[in-house]
């Protein structure tokens, strides 16, 4: 039996791209979230924002940011699972 007295965590790989990578000073990191409250892209962003500093500014509500989960475009309500890769990036400007 797993020890249920400790709240389970899931770990996601977070990738920051383009202007966000520059602004946050990081290309990515592994980030742990509580597994018991059905984490979503939005709850991940809220947790990152809670660090303050550039994370609070760049990920503030209303800022134009986009997401991908496991290399597919995702919305804020998409759930995230252990081992997922979540990319956070500005609106794309290719072509």
């Amino acid at each position: 039996m797993p020890d249920t007295s400790v709240s389970a965590q899931l770990r996601v790989r977070v990738v920051y791209l383009a202007r966000l990578r520059d602004a946050l000073g990081s290309a990515g990191e592994t980030f742990a979230l509580p597994a018991d409250d059905a984490p979503t892209v939005d709850s991940l962003v809220a947790a990152l924002r809670g660090r303050g500093g550039a994370f609070a500014t760049e990920l503030a509500p209303g800022r134009a940011i986009r997401f991908a989960v496991n290399h597919r475009v995702a919305g804020r309500s998409q759930s995230v699972a252990d081992g997922d890769e979540v990319a956070i990036f500005p609106p794309v400007t290719g072509g």
Partner: peptide
């Protein structure tokens, strides 16, 4: 294909200017 690529494909442009660099805004 071009219209969708412009808004959905994960590419980003950073411009080099005579006095520095800047990310292109969508």
């Amino acid at each position: 294909v071009m219209d969708w690529l412009k808004t959905r494909a994960p590419f980003w442009k950073k411009e080099r200017l005579p006095d520095g660099e800047r990310w292109v805004e969508a």
